[in-house]
Design a protein around this nucleic acid. Structure first.
Lengths: 188, 188, 188, 188
DNA sequence: CGCTAACCGAGACGGTACGTCCCGTCTTTAC
DNA sequence: GTAAAGACGGGACGTACCGTCTCGGTTAGCG
């Protein structure tokens, strides 16, 4: 147990439970998230769940870390505007589909209640945003884009996507991304 | 009950309970919101609470409607840019302070889980946004502002404010609003 | 609720639960006594059980009090020896049959662990013993019985009955009672 | 394990565990007896415990057998009454002090629930009682004691001691033994 | 001004989930 | 090959709320 590796049962349980926790979070939200039903989803005893995480917050926090996959820094080359559009396209997609999508509203809420979740969520957002800021800065420096503040432009662009997802019934679609960029950064 | 008005006891209870519900929502979030403690805050019996709203969602929905105060449509005159800045200033303030502030994350979350809450929340957001769109459209039409799509510009401007509030540890401040507007609509 | 009478639901629940608790005590003993199964026996929700008694000890204590029925003081007349035999006959019966029988070993054990149970059990025993002591004293005073110490004689007579019940596989039978009395108090 | 003897580690563990089991029994009673804490008391892994005894009852049964030390049959000579008093003195002491004392109530209770424990406990009691019966019979046969039934007299004498221990708050003391014997067997 | 209808608080009721503890079984690693 | 460590599924514990319900007591406001 100590040095080289874990008991394979532990690995199996933890994996199944973390996956189940994300499913539950997407299905039931943060309120309504039930340890009982996570265990059931995972096909694992309730006590096994509690053996690894003493309460719901610790489970959720750790489950979220498994989302923490670096989006590729694929914006280093080519026209800056295209990079920005690509990143926003990814974001548009991420908030509509995939494991993160269902979890975003729960995260927004949970961040308000739990320091730990907030730290994760802000870090996660910061990372996405950093790529966008970088692409913007590159475009501004090269003169390809107008002389906007890259930070505020990133807030506006990302914010529009989240705004449409969380405050309106109509999330942004892929083909609106170009228009959005044109609106904020001027026509291409 | 019939014609002229409600039993004053009912009015008293409802009012106290709605106020208490908002307090509770801000204090405990949507998860953690407890009917028990709403009744206690209001100094009212639990059964009185359930007499008026059968479950937590209906109480919350109705409590939120009491927030639905029209931000004044005071943007019909003067320079469009100033009107936009004023509206965004109000929004910045609202999401940072006051009764709405604590409730926004809970609403975002609850909208995901409840049709009713979603309808309310989207309508509420739409109303704020409509004023902004109108101001933008006026500016674009008059040539005072660049020829942006007012809808997308409104998403970007509002979105930036929400983005900072919900996805980062540093909400937007009043003095950043001018820069934000400059970023999206170009320098004044 | 306050003055004259209780909510009839309360009376119904309490009665069913106390009865069920005694059944459970007899069936499963003190160890093995399960609140869960008491509630089920009584056909009552688990939460109802806990509403009335916060833990197992309080339930058991109160259930035992319902056993506290005065054995009739029917020894005041007639020959003292006959009175003694009658009381011992009752005891022999009580430890073999009836609601007390199944509960005695659990009580002996529980008394060791709980002050409250011990107090009840000692009081209960004392009451039975007091009647016996009184009958013996009357016989000794009148010269009908030999000049034994009534207290110690009562210990010996009661003790024999319990000894046979708890420490041997063969409880005392009704027809042995006469011989027992003859052994301790001399032949009639 | 095979021919000559046990693995000394096994012997060590078994011994420590049996001792710990008795401690635990005395400390926590039969209810409240925890395998977990026996293992801890013995400084041994929980799985080691379960390797030797599959469940709590077998452990307790075997632990109790280690108490099964013959009280010395030192009553074969001298006056019968003195022998009886000596045996009762031992019993009085045993139920008040030493390893047996704390375990008697648990045994009484456990006997009700487990065939195995009952067999052990009845055998253990029978053995003590046999010595007493023998001493009484000797006294009756020699004419030193009145012509009582030795079996019933033994029940009464032993029973008195247990009665005081288990059903009253005041166990019998050494100096009451003489009076007890006088009560049952007549004055010396 | 007195009656009646409604509203009120208190709180019992059956449920469900919580997080904890221990059971008896089991698998894995270290000596 | 046995011991120690400890994961596993299971189940009871006592707590906290849920949403429903029954109960007397009190307050309108109408007739």
């Amino acid at each position: 147990v100590s040095r080289s590796g874990l008991d394979p049962r532990v690995a199996r349980s933890r994996e199944a439970l973390l996956r189940a926790a994300l499913d539950e979070l997407a299905a039931a939200g943060y309120a309504g998230f039930s340890m009982e039903s996570v265990a059931e989803r995972a096909g694992v005893g309730r006590s096994t769940l509690y053996r690894h995480w003493n309460d719901r917050l610790r489970l959720i926090s750790e489950a979220l870390e498994s989302l923490n996959v670096q989006p590729r820094a694929d914006t280093a080359e080519g026209p800056a505007r295209a990079g920005v559009e690509r990143l926003l396209g990814h974001l548009t997609d991420a908030v509509a589909r995939g494991p993160v999508a269902g979890v975003v509203p729960a995260l927004v809420h949970a961040s308000e209640l739990s320091r730990e979740v907030a730290v994760f969520w802000h870090a996660y957002s910061l990372q996405r945003r950093a790529a966008l800021v970088e692409a913007l800065r590159r475009g501004v420096d090269s003169g390809e884009l107008p002389a906007v503040d890259p930070e505020l432009a990133a807030d506006a662009l990302s914010g529009a996507v989240f705004y449409r997802r969380l405050m309106t019934p109509a999330p942004m679609t892929a083909d609106e991304v170009g228009d959005l960029v044109a609106t904020v950064l001027g026509p291409s």
